[in-house]
Design a protein around this nucleic acid. Structure first.
Lengths: 236, 236
DNA sequence: GCCAATCTTGACGGCATCTTGATACGCGGC
DNA sequence: GCCGCGTATCAAGATGCCGTCAAGATTGGC
């Protein structure tokens, strides 16, 4: 096992799945540690400070979502939630509670590893360059937080206050999934999280202004039934 | 913690928000100190002379605006006000009372840091070169306070007395938001702060005379519902 | 008192923003 | 294939603030 690999806590009560994940991670340079219950997960987190946490929502007593909340209070490590099909509500609740991303069972090893890498990349880029980030850059897109200016490929983009706020929220959580609720609370404040329609309208506007081809967005990605995700432009 | 970082006083009564801000500032090289009540804020300000003050308007007893006024009387440090959505009136009142800028909750860390940097930059540039504040320069724009002459890109600009007073007011508060009230009191004196219309007329004139493209001003920026802000021309 | 420069005021148009409704699309389930 | 859910997009409306033009009032110099 790679002694320098990222420490990953697996919270999973079903032994076969746990073993499968452990083997997969170990084979790819991670150092897996394990927990099967809520208190165990908390103890492991406090003691070993894992770099990333994999959490199956199918925990006994359905305490998964609460566990996410508790963990989020004690660590900044990215939390990836594993949920079964048809568990959409739990998944959204877990994200609302602070999870960073999700994987749906059944999943392939490569999918899981890819998600983990993305989560780790963004976690470290947020944490490491403690130097003041006056601007956010994603490929040709640049957001100047001081001047409150957005440029795409050099040309300036005019955004209304709400549009700007939404974009900044997305960009600052690049790589993460943001639920409808999180987006609305972030843009309109708490207590205004019941009109997902508005969000869609603004997403459409942002895409039209930012994306080269709004019908095939490269930055603003829809997560069906969950919310949206901002990512760096992929190689088209 | 960086022992040389700017000392920032956080005035915030809600513990979670306060901790969040403190952690964010400490992680970016600032030295945060804290207060949760009005008298505490005043005491901390007198004793530690912070370089910048972050003040949540949601203080108990709604004393936020009054506190701004009092603080302004005892320190020249920039005051950044934190207000919630829908608190537009309080926000404007706080700016009138002497606050330098505002951030709207909920806000991102980077957004907050960006505002702080802007405030600190202008505060020091105003404070340090006490020598010969005979002229102000912003990119191609130059205001000679002794000769009472304004040039843009070398060519002289003819301004009427009122136009000149307005421009100087804006330029001397570059980076800050100036409310309609402040502008009117600054240009026409106290007791003439109820005709925002005049201000718009003069802003239009100034833009026509100073800006390359008055329809897209680079110096004189409108702050909807608040007032105006003068800034250096960005790199377009 | 006259003139020119300046300032004020009114009116209008415009723009921007935000919201809401209507409609079409896309995808998966049945 | 049909249906239903969630989504994308367009359109229209309400509101309030802003920018601009131009006429009228004022001021100050002579």
């Amino acid at each position: 096992m790679n002694p320098d690999g990222p420490l990953v806590l697996i919270v999973e009560d079903e032994a076969p799945v746990r073993l499968f994940i452990r083997a997969s991670l170990a084979a790819h340079g991670f150092r897996p540690i394990e927990a099967t219950t809520e208190p165990e997960a908390l103890a492991m987190t406090d003691r070993h400070r894992p770099t990333l946490i994999l959490l199956d929502l199918d925990l006994p007593a359905a305490q998964g979502v609460e566990l996410v909340r508790t963990l989020r209070g004690s660590t900044k490590a990215p939390i990836l939630v594993i949920s079964a099909r048809g568990q959409e509500d739990d998944k959204v609740a877990a994200l609302d509670a602070g999870a960073d991303d999700y994987v749906t069972k059944p999943f392939g090893v490569n999918e899981l590893l890819a998600r983990m890498r993305v989560a780790l990349r963004y976690a470290t880029t947020i944490d490491e360059p403690r130097k003041a980030t006056a601007a956010l850059s994603f490929g040709g897109l640049r957001i100047d937080l001081e001047q409150r200016e957005v440029t795409s490929g050099g040309r300036a983009i005019r955004l209304t206050p709400t549009e700007y706020r939404l974009l900044v929220l997305l960009a600052q959580n690049a790589g993460r999934v943001l639920t409808h609720r999180q987006i609305q609370e972030g843009v309109w404040g708490a207590g205004h999280a019941d009109q997902p329609h508005r969000v869609r309208v603004y997403m459409a506007v942002l895409r039209k202004k930012l994306e080269d081809d709004p019908a095939w967005p490269r930055h603003i990605v829809t997560e069906q039934g969950i919310g949206y995700r901002f990512r760096e432009a992929s190689s088209a």
